[in-house]
Amino acid sequence: MSDHDDSNADAHDAEHDESHVGHHGSMKLFVTVFIALIVLTTISFTAANSPLMNNPMVGWSVMMAISCAKAMLVISFFMHMLWEANWKFVLTIPASMMSVFLVLMLVPDVGLRTHRYSESRWRYASEPQEEHVAGEVHIEVSPDVDGDESDDEDEGEE
């Protein structure tokens, strides 16, 4: 595809000179963005090894926020989106919304799948671990190991 872009771009440049309003940003700006990205990566790295991770949700949120910030920096400056016309929203926002929607719709069925595991299924699932870390010897293979043996299918489906 790329060779094609190339040849078309040439011809097009000649036709629509206004389409490349040449100089947005400067090397100085790009160096600044680059340094900002490095700093953000360092912060993210530090956060992962800091007391923030005592509550993983906090640590994860911080790291994802930093990632989003980095992504915005790359998109805005390196990909020149800051200087593009409004079509940038048309192309990027629907895709972003749809991807977020897809992931959200996966949550109830796949993200929460273990909520509906039956007892017999728990037997073969990876070990639930919070029972162990407390340092007690007693292990439960399922949240309700002493529960009724008979309801072994889809007990979570009310």
Binding site: S99, L106, V110, T114, S126, E127, P128, E130
Partner: peptide, 14 residues
Amino acid sequence: GTYIVLRWGAPANT
């Protein structure tokens, strides 16, 4: 998305 739901849906903290 697959990674996210598989990971956070895995049996608690495994």
